[in-house]
Amino acid sequence: MRDGTGEAPRRLAGSTPSGEGRRGRGATANPDGRFEASSRESFDDGWDREDEAPPLRTTVTAERARSIITRNDSPDISFDRSINPYRGCEHGCIYCFARPNHAYVGLSPGLDFETRLFAKPDAARLLERELSARSYRPRTIALGTATDPYQPIERRHRITRGVLEVLLRFRHPVGIVTKSNLVARDIDILAPMARLGLVKVAVSVTTLDPVLARRMEPRAPHPQRRLDAIRALSAAGVPVMVIAAPIIPSLNDHEIEAILEAARDCGAREASHVLLRLPHELDDLVSDWFAEHYPGRREHVFSLVRQARGGKAYDATFGKRMLGEGAYAGLIAQRMRLARERLGFAETRLTLDASAFRVPTDQLSLF
């Protein structure tokens, strides 16, 4: 297969099941993580073994965390603390910037990231303990900053719901990021929180094209289901932001205005975007995905990405990593600004209220 430039596209080495064996998965390969002492290399021995690869199954391992609130001091994001109930994400979005984190536990950022998951069953108990500490000072907690708190395994594990129940009892503010309509299941918790100014939900809509969505994010809900979630949340009084993310040059960037208009019509109050980010192994994973699905676009897409990232696949500099810089990034930012103004989105972000925080009286005074 050629990529339209006459050059055969780069393919990743590693254990890669056949297309049938990885049906419904986003990554096209399972390369080694960057911290591994050894690496695997694909080898063609002349035998066609594709039909021997069993379908990939999702496994979930309990992770016994010591604490649940993660702190950060990044100057270019609006929160200093977050909770991620799960590690890895079954949605399988090929572009997910959290994929490289799987290398820290000795697993591949490729197919392992979307099939070998970790859940934190003690999250609610740990959160209750941490919020009850005498030294704790409330500020908005971001829920789902790395992996989606409403990915499919939440239906069974219900860890995110347990976290929200604790936050409501403590009157603690929370901002949720998701691309799943499963968030609407918890309206019975979110609506009371909204009345107290304690919550807002950011729903990611990458594309309105179901064919493209199925290829990029194979186990995430259909785009219409995400719009339905925006409508349901808004009708319940829960403030919603739509995130057009990631913006991928020459793939979904033409949809910016349509995404914002559809979300506005469903009740979204705010809108933002993120330009495609390719840290660490994600560069090769996305390149390999393009080689399989859109070989003729790969070179053009990566050329525009490099233009917006100072000539590199990724620039982690604070203030640049989310939106990029240069002519292409500037054009996207301008289109977002004009669309927000035309559609009547709020000019300033909603600030949640931390003043109502209190430790429930049924808590033991042990901290």
Rank of each mutant, 00 (worst) to 15 (best):
2 R>K: 14
5 T>N: 11
15 S>H: 09
18 S>Q: 08
25 R>A: 09
25 R>H: 15
25 R>D: 00
28 T>S: 10
28 T>V: 15
31 P>S: 04
34 R>V: 11
38 S>Q: 10
46 G>A: 09
51 D>E: 13
54 P>G: 10
55 P>Y: 06
70 T>P: 00
70 T>N: 07
72 N>M: 11
77 I>V: 15
79 F>Y: 13
84 N>D: 15
88 G>K: 05
95 Y>P: 06
95 Y>D: 04
95 Y>T: 14
96 C>W: 10
100 P>E: 10
103 A>P: 06
104 Y>P: 00
107 L>M: 14
111 L>Q: 00
113 F>M: 09
118 F>G: 11
126 L>A: 00
128 E>C: 04
132 S>E: 03
133 A>Y: 04
133 A>N: 11
136 Y>A: 01
137 R>M: 06
138 P>I: 06
145 T>C: 10
149 P>Q: 07
150 Y>H: 07
152 P>V: 08
154 E>R: 05
162 G>Q: 03
167 L>H: 09
167 L>D: 01
169 R>S: 10
173 P>Q: 11
182 L>C: 02
190 L>Q: 06
191 A>W: 06
191 A>F: 06
192 P>S: 10
195 R>D: 12
198 L>A: 08
200 K>T: 01
200 K>H: 14
208 L>K: 00
217 E>R: 08
223 P>V: 07
224 Q>V: 01
229 A>D: 02
232 A>G: 01
235 A>C: 02
237 G>L: 07
238 V>C: 09
244 A>C: 12
248 I>E: 03
253 D>E: 08
256 I>Y: 02
261 E>L: 06
264 R>P: 05
264 R>C: 05
267 G>T: 03
267 G>D: 02
269 R>H: 06
271 A>W: 08
275 L>S: 01
280 H>K: 14
283 D>E: 15
283 D>V: 05
299 E>T: 12
301 V>H: 04
302 F>I: 03
303 S>C: 03
304 L>I: 08
306 R>V: 03
307 Q>S: 15
309 R>N: 15
311 G>T: 14
314 Y>F: 15
318 F>S: 14
320 K>R: 15
323 L>R: 11
326 G>C: 10
327 A>W: 06
327 A>K: 14
338 L>H: 13
341 E>A: 13
342 R>G: 02
343 L>Y: 02
347 E>A: 15
353 D>H: 11
353 D>S: 13
355 S>I: 05
366 L>S: 15
366 L>D: 11
